[in-house]
Simulated scan of single mutants.
Amino acid sequence: MSTAETGAVPPPEVMTIASPINLILLSLFIILIYTQFRPKAPVTLPKSPAPIVFRTFTPTTLLPFNGTEDKPVYLAVRGRVFDVSPGRNFYGPGGPYENFAGRDASRGLACQSFDEEMLTKDLKGPLDELKDLDGEQLENLQSWEERFSEKYLVVGKLVAESDPEAVKA
């Protein structure tokens, strides 16, 4: 006889906590809690470059800053020395403007010439005063100087070897 014929009520099904769906949900909950509260790796900041100190350069003390031997690349424009190291591929060894690295680039930039002839040969002599440049050349130089000022840090000034400031430096 079936339970329907006898009028008896079937026994209630026992719900277990360990059902497969509950185990899956519990596992997902534990994974979620773990990912939220697990120990995080300590944050490490990138190492900062050495601080750059504004200083006075002479043509001979500027010369070593040409990008060789992992040194920074500096060049001077109208007495201001710029750190052009971020543009090492242009101004450093092998770059199109490598002649200007570690030198006063004013005349070459003004004349739009990257030849060796544009560089001052006598490093112990006076700085090039650029008095013989015409208006167009001075305008070229001004635009280069503005570009460098916007893009690169000024790290010093360039003075002649005979300048009293050169002796102090």
Rank of each mutant, 00 (worst) to 15 (best):
M1L: 10
M1D: 07
T3A: 14
E5I: 06
E5S: 10
T6L: 15
A8E: 14
V9A: 14
P10A: 05
P10R: 08
P12Q: 10
E13T: 07
S19C: 11
P20T: 03
N22D: 06
L23I: 14
I24Q: 12
I24E: 13
L26C: 11
L26W: 11
L28H: 11
I30Q: 11
I31R: 11
I33Y: 05
T35N: 13
T35P: 04
Q36R: 14
F37L: 09
F37V: 12
A41N: 13
A41M: 10
P42E: 11
V43I: 03
L45Q: 10
P46Y: 07
K47A: 14
K47T: 13
P51L: 06
I52S: 14
I52M: 14
V53H: 09
F54P: 01
T56S: 08
T56E: 05
T56L: 03
F57G: 00
F57H: 00
F57Q: 00
T58W: 03
L62P: 02
L62K: 04
L62C: 02
N66Y: 09
G67H: 10
G67A: 10
G67Y: 05
G67K: 05
T68A: 13
K71Y: 07
V73Q: 02
V73F: 10
Y74C: 02
Y74T: 00
L75S: 02
G79I: 02
V81K: 09
D83L: 09
V84H: 02
S85G: 08
G87I: 02
R88G: 00
F90I: 04
Y91C: 10
G92L: 00
G95N: 04
Y97A: 07
Y97H: 09
E98F: 07
N99A: 12
D104V: 01
R107M: 02
L109R: 06
C111Y: 10
C111L: 15
Q112N: 15
Q112V: 11
S113L: 08
S113D: 15
S113P: 08
F114W: 08
F114Q: 05
D115P: 05
M118V: 05
L119A: 05
L119D: 04
L119E: 01
T120H: 11
K121W: 00
D122K: 10
K124C: 07
K124Y: 08
P126K: 01
L127G: 04
K131F: 09
L133M: 02
L133F: 07
D134I: 01
G135C: 02
G135L: 08
E136H: 09
E136Q: 12
E136G: 15
E136M: 13
Q142G: 12
W144G: 05
E145R: 02
R147W: 13
R147P: 01
S149Q: 12
S149A: 15
E150A: 15
Y152K: 03
V154F: 03
V155R: 00
K157I: 04
A160C: 01
E165K: 08
A166T: 06
V167R: 12
V167A: 14
K168E: 12
A169K: 03
